[in-house]
């Protein structure tokens, strides 16, 4: 059986759900060890050890790993990967930043955004903004390096009896010419967009930053996360980390409600794994209606408060 090393994503305290999703993909490929690169991250390693499918956890705890700097993490991963047949990471901005750097150090191609494992060397992945699916095979005895498209895999449970956590040292020269300065997170108490069961999103049709409050109110009523189209982010209504789509976040909630989003191909790429898609738009010809399970044509400024009230009863 193949051995798989799965790179854990975390913020220093909490394991990101992208790791549990990528684990589902990793388990289809072989026996999985999870590697946590961090600084003072015993808690994260412990969470990783409880992931279903984790055989053991490798914890590389050193000050240089305090922030996810690709140039620092890649040489460590290249060194660790030599013992494994497969190196996998979630296809989040974290994984997408680091893994190609590792692949280049090892001189092997990378499979980006694995959406399905066909066999141990063959995978499906989306191209052309998800409008085409291609099947690719990794040649010969090449090591397999890939990122798992997180919306394509359900998260594994995180409650197994803890696997062994091994603190390890990695021999690697780490560069110092990248300095991590800071992270400006829009944060808030709302559910995380990529793991929420329900998402309410707004597009250019919302019209202003102030009007977006209507979206937030409905989301709070539903216990939903809030997202946006690229147009709404470009217009400055909401910050970039709320963007859904090809160049934003790919999401797979049970329920997705889109207000004033026309449904550009790039946006649809980000939502097509949703369970139920609801579209509300004043333009009955908007392309989003082609993919919507439930469509309602009308003025969202009337519909939003009405819906909020209807759900409150």
């Amino acid at each position: 059986m193949a051995t798989v090393l799965l790179l854990a994503e975390h913020d220093g305290e909490t394991l990101n759900v992208s790791t549990a999703r990528a684990m589902r993909c990793a388990m289809a490929l072989g026996e999985v060890d999870v590697v946590v690169l961090g600084a003072g991250t015993d808690g994260v390693a412990e969470q990783a050890s409880r992931l279903e499918g984790a055989r053991r956890v490798l914890h590389v705890d050193r000050p240089e790993n305090a922030h996810p700097v690709a140039a620092v993490m890649a040489p460590q991963l290249a060194s660790l990967a030599s013992e494994y047949d497969v190196l996998l990471a979630p296809s989040s901005t974290f994984g997408r930043d680091i893994l190609p750097r590792v692949a280049a150090l090892l001189g092997v191609p990378q499979i980006s955004d694995i959406m399905e494992v066909i066999d141990e060397r063959t995978f499906k992945r989306p191209i052309y903004a998800g409008n085409v699916i291609t099947t690719v095979r990794v040649p010969g005895d090449c090591k397999i390096i890939g990122t798992a498209r997180i919306a394509s895999f359900a998260a594994v449970a995180g409650a197994q009896a803890p696997a062994a956590v091994e603190s390890i040292q990695v021999e690697a020269d780490l560069p110092t010419d990248t300095v991590w300065i800071g992270l400006e997170a829009s944060g808030g108490d709302r559910p995380d967009l990529q793991s929420a069961n329900r998402v309410v999103a707004g597009g250019r049709g919302i019209g202003s930053k102030e009007n977006f409050d209507l979206i937030f109110r409905l989301a709070d009523r539903l216990g939903a996360a809030v997202g946006a189209s690229r147009a709404a982010v470009d217009a400055g209504y909401v910050p970039n980390d709320m963007q859904i789509g090809q160049t934003g976040k790919i999401i797979a909630p049970d329920l997705y409600i889109a207000f004033g989003i026309s449904g550009a191909i790039q946006h649809m790429t980000g939502i097509k794994d949703a369970g139920v898609i609801v579209a509300i738009n004043k333009d009955g010809e908007a392309p989003i209606f082609e993919a919507a399970d439930i469509g309602l044509v009308g003025d969202l400024f009337q519909i939003l408060p009405e819906l909020e009230k209807a759900l409150g009863d």
Partner: peptide, 20 residues
């Protein structure tokens, strides 16, 4: 370097039509 072998291309599964 080695390159990935392309085995084929297909359209993504279509979502079935919804209701208005």
């Amino acid at each position: 370097p080695p390159q990935l072998e392309n085995l084929g291309y297909e359209a993504p599964p279509k979502r079935s039509g919804g209701v208005r």
